[in-house]
Design a protein around this nucleic acid. Structure first.
Length: 455
RNA sequence: GGAGAGGUGGCUGAGUGGUUGAAAGCACCGCACUCGAAAUGCGGCAUACGGGUAACCGUAUCGGGGGUUCGAAUCCCUCCCUCUCCGCCA
């Protein structure tokens, strides 16, 4: 969410930055809404001030038993009785109009973000490792997993539909091992605090990190007492089942699409002392995504699922610290892949490929031999004060005791499902078995190799 | 699910519909006293928005929303949240 006062003072810079994202200028429209809002505020406050003044006099008059004076003042204030609520309603509507418009505007790219229209404009920053020599054509993870009898998409479809998977035995264990390994690395060596957050959150929490209102179609929602709520909604002839259910007393929560949502919102509506910053938080959680815009994309295998596990990194910093923290966070995520011995490259996303809330983003793309391609396994973003403003998350400066919005950053450290895929495809053997990377062995009871088991 | 009790400033906690943004205490900051500290005394100490170069002025906020009233922390409705007891449950 942008500061309308900043837009007012920097209208050209604002529109120029939006243009870099391929968007039309909005400063004029925003400023017009703001002017309407401020005019409404002025009118409403003036009326209220007058009412307050006269009301006070009425109180005085009644106290001194001056009934004639009181009656005269009452008559005088009569007109305000309808005017004040009307003006207040206008003010509310004008403020809502501005807020609604502002909530739809994405963050602005930092100056050093490369310009571009889409993923083709991303710039490689550096890479690590190399492709391994493999005797025959490497197989994809789902071919390996199905052959091992430990990755079952058909059964998952029976339970939940497309884009779900059932892992069994050693592969299930390896997924868990990956999450544990990452969490241990970040908490023991990188200074992050482990969090076990709620997976169902309120609407305003989703708004805080900017998943809502614009990306509702990408999210899952859960209803408590869904049957009863929906039945009542139906009988009301309501169009939108969810909103209606809520209106009918249904209790709606959103399933987190990433732990970024609960972790970042940990500081919502609060003022953190500067001495306590930066906050570094990590969690390993399931993530739920509707993948609404991805029909037909990555339909095979575990690359794109409605549910997947991810270790998330979140930092809350002062404005001065956020750029350095971004580099640090990237290094923390990279370290995961280095220790797993996975080949990857780091891309600086261009203006056209960045997410809504980001002002700068690094993606880590891991090499998948079976796919013969680099695929995203982590995305580390600085959001500046964009989310902080939506969440009302502030800090008090050490010097001067001033209050300002914090900066927030988030990154995957890393996506566990995709890490499993990368390990499988990278460490696959001719016979279809998979060598276990050394760093995972302690988490897998010393198992050295994942093999097909009878049954 | 049933019954009940509550939500007031960073915290504790008063508050008869009329200068109550809100007593008091604690915490915090400044000053005085002190060699220093403690104790004590004096003063300060919410947030947001609007207006103003500024000093400052105005408006709103006592869980959220709505209502009654010239005027609401105080009355009414509604929603949310917290707590206690009972039941159920991983």
């Amino acid at each position: 969410m942008h500061d309308i006062r900043w837009i007012r003072d920097n209208a050209q810079a604002f529109d120029r930055a939006l243009a870099r994202r391929g968007l039309a200028g909005l400063a004029g429209a925003m400023i017009a809404l703001d002017e309407r809002r401020r005019a409404a505020i002025g009118a409403a406050e003036e009326a209220q001030a007058r009412r307050n003044l006269v009301s006070r006099d009425i109180g005085e008059a009644k106290k001194s038993k001056d009934d004639a004076m009181a009656a005269r003042l009452l008559a005088e204030v009569g007109e305000l009785k309808t005017r004040v609520p009307a003006l207040a309603a206008q003010e509310k509507a004008a403020t809502l109009a501005l807020d609604t418009a502002l909530a739809q505007v994405p963050n602005l790219p930092l100056d050093d973000v490369p310009d571009g229209h889409d993923a083709n404009g991303n710039v490689e920053r550096h890479r690590f490792g190399a492709k391994r020599a493999q005797a025959s054509a490497p197989r994809q993870h789902f071919e390996l997993g199905e052959a091992l009898g430990q990755m079952d998409f058909e059964t998952a479809a029976k339970l939940s539909g497309a884009r779900f998977v059932v892992l069994k035995g050693a592969l299930a264990r390896m997924e868990r091992a990956l999450g544990q390994f990452m969490l241990d690395l970040h908490t023991r060596e990188h200074g992050y605090v482990e969090i076990s957050p709620p997976l169902l959150v309120r609407e305003e929490v989703m708004f805080g990190t900017a998943q809502l209102p614009k990306f509702a179609a990408d999210q899952f929602a859960a209803l408590a007492g869904a049957d009863a709520a929906l039945r009542r909604a139906d009988s009301n002839g309501a169009a939108d089942g969810l909103d209606a259910a809520r209106g009918a007393g249904g209790d709606r929560r959103w399933l987190i699409p990433t732990a970024e949502v609960p972790l970042t919102n940990l500081v919502r509506e609060s003022i953190v002392e500067e001495a306590d910053l930066p906050l570094r938080l990590t969690a390993c959680t399931p993530c739920f995504r509707a993948e609404a815009g991805a029909a037909g994309k990555d339909t095979r295998g575990m690359i794109r699922q409605h549910q997947f596990t991810k270790v998330e990194l979140v930092s809350v910093t002062t404005p001065r610290q956020s750029a350095d923290e971004h580099e640090r966070m990237l290094a923390c995520a990279e370290e995961v892949l280095r220790r797993l011995g996975l080949h990857y490259r780091v891309m600086t996303l261009c203006t056209g490929d960045m997410g809504f809330a980001a002002r700068k983003t690094y993606d880590i793309e891991v090499w998948l031999p079976g796919q013969n391609a680099f695929r995203e396994i982590s995305s580390c973003s600085q959001c500046g004060d964009f989310q902080a403003r939506r969440m009302a998350a502030r800090y008090r400066a050490r010097e001067g005791r001033e209050v300002g919005h914090v900066h927030t950053l988030n990154g995957s450290g890393v996506a566990v499902g995709r890490a499993l895929i990368a390990v499988m495809e990278t460490y696959q053997q001719e016979d279809g078995s998979i060598m276990v990377p050394e760093v995972l062995a302690p988490y897998m009871a010393g198992m050295a190799r994942v093999e097909r088991v009878a049954g």
